[in-house]
Amino acid sequence: MIEVQDVSKKYGDFTALHSIDLKIKTGEFIAVLGPSGCGKTTLLKLLAGFMGPTTGNIVMDGTLMATAKRVTPPEKRNIGMVFQSFALWPHMTVADHIKFPLDHHPNRKKESKAELQSRINDVLGLVGLDAFAARYPSELSGGQKQRVALARAIAPLPNLLLMDEPFSALDVELRMEMRKEIQKLHRETGASIVFVTHDQSEALAIADKIVVMNDGRIEQIAPPEIIYTRPETPFVATFVGKCNLIKGQWKKEGFVPEIDPGSIWPDLGVARSFKADGIYPVRPEQLQLSPAKKNGLHGRVTFVQYQGHEIHYTVEVAGGTWTVHEPVYLPRFQAGDAVEVSLKAGAGQERDFLSAAR
């Protein structure tokens, strides 16, 4: 168990983190998600011990690791670190990269040469680099280099694995492949993982729980499904999945859109903060388009993007801009078409299912 207790971090007059509270359970996979400059990397550096908090405490497995006055350095913490830029040593082979932390990690016991080689072989097999043990970084592809960085981090069996946007230098296909590798490593090592990213699809795909940050504050902490279907703040709603925020009035029977006062939209589990502000968050896939008729909520298509399995529409509605996602098998609209926008009949089924599951 790792506890971040009321931690803040200042750089002169600038506050990078504002009173952060976070608990990470043993074996949990946490993704820290947010835009550039939101405090993600600062939080990671505090967990690693690269610097100390301005206020607050960090406790790991019941041991106080950091306060404003005292910080346990990284080499005395049972952690592994995967950097954004791989940070491989050009003069070391793949096997040497794995051997190095086994020789120097403070929590590793002295092992015989046979035991050491066995552990190196185990790690090579785990990351699929058995055939590359004698190669140097200059002889590896980007994906292989990332695997070496992962192997080096997990070799000494750390309790906590910290990853700072490790896939940012990889192309799309490699990113998808490495997501699977990370999930496999998580299952097989049992380490707690804190994975920093600004890629919402990455966070949704691999994490047990997502911490959404903005301007040095935590906006919401929840499993991916809850973050996506039940956002608690406008920032979470628009940053994760690009919600449309519709203004209107909440009544007992539901939501009355300001631009369509003749209709009532059902409560799909909308957070109290949205209700207090008279806002209805609706995902692009919860809306549907049809040819414009006399009645209904009218709009005009301004932009069309083909996305393989979906068509992404941008629609101007009463001076506002809405995003609508529709399957490719439905009749396609073109830019300039007049359309009617409505809430899908089954829009709340997924949220109802999640609510029942909880």
Rank of each mutant, 00 (worst) to 15 (best):
G241V: 08
G241N: 03
K242S: 12
C243Y: 04
C243R: 01
C243Q: 02
C243S: 15
C243G: 04
C243L: 00
N244Q: 04
L245N: 06
L245Y: 05
L245C: 07
L245K: 04
L245P: 01
K247V: 06
K247M: 11
G248L: 15
Q249E: 12
Q249F: 01
Q249S: 09
Q249D: 11
W250C: 04
W250P: 11
W250I: 10
W250E: 04
K251Y: 08
K251L: 09
K251P: 00
K252N: 08
K252Y: 04
E253Y: 11
E253A: 15
E253M: 12
E253H: 12
G254M: 05
G254W: 07
F255I: 12
F255R: 12
V256C: 15
V256N: 07
V256Q: 13
V256T: 07
V256E: 07
P257W: 00
E258I: 14
I259M: 03
I259D: 13
I259L: 06
I259F: 10
D260W: 09
D260V: 04
D260N: 15
D260P: 07
P261Y: 05
P261Q: 10
G262M: 10
G262D: 15
S263K: 10
S263P: 02
I264E: 02
I264P: 00
I264Q: 01
I264L: 11
W265Y: 15
W265V: 11
W265D: 06
P266V: 10
D267H: 06
L268M: 11
G269S: 06
G269W: 08
G269Y: 05
G269T: 09
V270R: 05
R272N: 11
S273L: 13
S273D: 13
S273T: 14
S273Q: 13
F274E: 03
F274N: 08
K275Q: 11
K275Y: 04
K275M: 08
A276S: 03
D277V: 01
D277I: 01
D277K: 02
D277F: 08
G278M: 07
G278Q: 09
G278R: 06
I279C: 09
I279R: 00
I279Y: 07
I279S: 02
Y280D: 00
Y280S: 02
P281V: 00
P281Q: 02
P281R: 03
P281T: 00
V282T: 09
R283E: 00
R283L: 14
R283V: 00
E285S: 12
Q286P: 05
Q286W: 09
L287H: 04
Q288L: 13
L289A: 11
L289H: 06
S290K: 12
S290C: 12
P291S: 09
A292R: 11
K293Y: 02
K294W: 07
K294N: 05
N295G: 08
N295I: 14
G296P: 08
G296Y: 13
L297C: 15
L297Q: 08
L297A: 10
H298W: 02
H298T: 10
H298S: 15
H298I: 11
G299H: 10
G299L: 05
G299I: 06
